[in-house]
Nucleic acid binder design. Structure first.
Lengths: 207, 207
DNA sequence: GAGTATACTGAACGGGCGTTCTGCTGTCAA
DNA sequence: TTGACAGCAGAACGCCCGTTCAGTATACTC
């Protein structure tokens, strides 16, 4: 993901920083001034490469300050902010990573979403994590990953349905443990692959 | 707050919509095209008025697409998104509304933060609302207001310290009720004014 | 009736800014 | 050693775009 040539990475970082801190994208000359590139063409070359590689977007050509960040950029590196798309309910079907948001975005400070990699948000249905302080209707912010460690709270796909549970590997089977006084854990055998969608890294609730 | 002349409100709404949906501010001519204003000066007049009234900002003059929204704009109207500044800990001193963010921002879909008016976020210290699923370290999103209704979860100033409690008016006194099995409520007499800072409208937790 | 705010048209100026072209210097793999 | 890629310089073109100046029209207040 982050296999950019060093100078291109600097250019991308510079553009991202300016967009985040100033609220409006820089011009080629502004980028050049910051990085010591006197020719606009020098910057244009880098931008062209970054667009081709999917790190930047240029929706309208020939337009002043027309550079935009893509999801690839906002969910990478040490960006101070992060756009987390809300992909749907955690009890309804398979969540799919998409560029465009379905139900809006959670825009959070980078330090509030631990770890790297793409993230998404889901709405929790049911009370299975009530003892963790996660209620029906809460949103969970999930970092996409296929594996998990014992004790992690994960979003897993069981019978084509996504659920939020604690993850425990017990020998050959996996235990998906709810945080509810009366609900029983779900066991997934070695044959049925437990499709881990990601790890819950944050929770959001609306009153 | 929203006492703008109708046409100025349309211009502001148009600019805000374009910034939110396209990610980059519009030019005067783009605004004019959308609203049927053929002269850039017509738009410039509206922008000038909106800047003077504090609804827009123009940090650099003479710069293409240099318009920015102010906190006044983002926390008003039917904006689809909302920037909520994080102002500090809920147990540490008086929260103050400021233009610039202290600890970053929660950028949330408008429909996720009920109600109107300016909002801010605070970090909760202690376990006093544990039974509500609000843990130590959680963030609460607070809509600024001076009054509250029975049962509201509010941020109140008691002895110059901000706390999160449920609000109940009981005759002449006010009861600030924690959601904790062993913690006692705080009573505020009629003489001591309970300084309500706002109402908790959302919660955010980071793992 | 004078003054002020709103809401524009039309035109022109001048710098901002993306684009394009040519050409240069490296490095690295084939 | 030929080629591809990264990373520039320098210059020129031409539209984009904020700004400014000069008016016009309506509505409202004093």
């Amino acid at each position: 993901m982050d296999d950019l040539p060093p100078r291109q990475a600097e250019v991308l970082e510079c553009i991202r920083r300016i967009i985040v801190t100033r609220g409006i994208p820089p011009t080629y000359r502004e980028v050049g001034d910051e990085l010591g590139i006197s020719s606009t063409n020098g910057v244009a070359d880098h931008v062209k490469a970054l667009v081709e590689k999917g790190y930047l977007r240029k929706p309208m050509r020939g337009v002043a300050r027309g550079l935009q960040l893509t999801a690839k950029t906002t969910s990478m590196g040490d960006s101070p902010t992060l756009d987390v798309p809300i992909l749907g309910n955690v009890a309804a079907g398979v969540p799919i990573m998409a560029d465009e948001n379905l139900d809006g975005c959670l825009h959070l400070g980078r330090d509030m979403v631990p770890g790297k990699g793409p993230s998404f948000a889901l709405r929790v249905r049911g009370e299975s994590m009530i003892e963790e302080g996660i209620h029906d209707g809460d949103y969970v912010i999930v970092r996409q990953q296929q594996t998990a460690r014992n004790g992690d709270m994960v979003v897993a796909l069981v019978d084509d349905e996504a659920t939020v549970k604690f993850f425990f590997k017990e020998g050959k089977r996996i235990r998906l443990q709810p945080a509810h006084p009366t609900m029983a854990p779900i066991f997934v055998g070695a044959d049925q692959r437990a499709a881990i969608q990601g790890k819950v890294v944050a929770v959001f609730r609306k009153y």
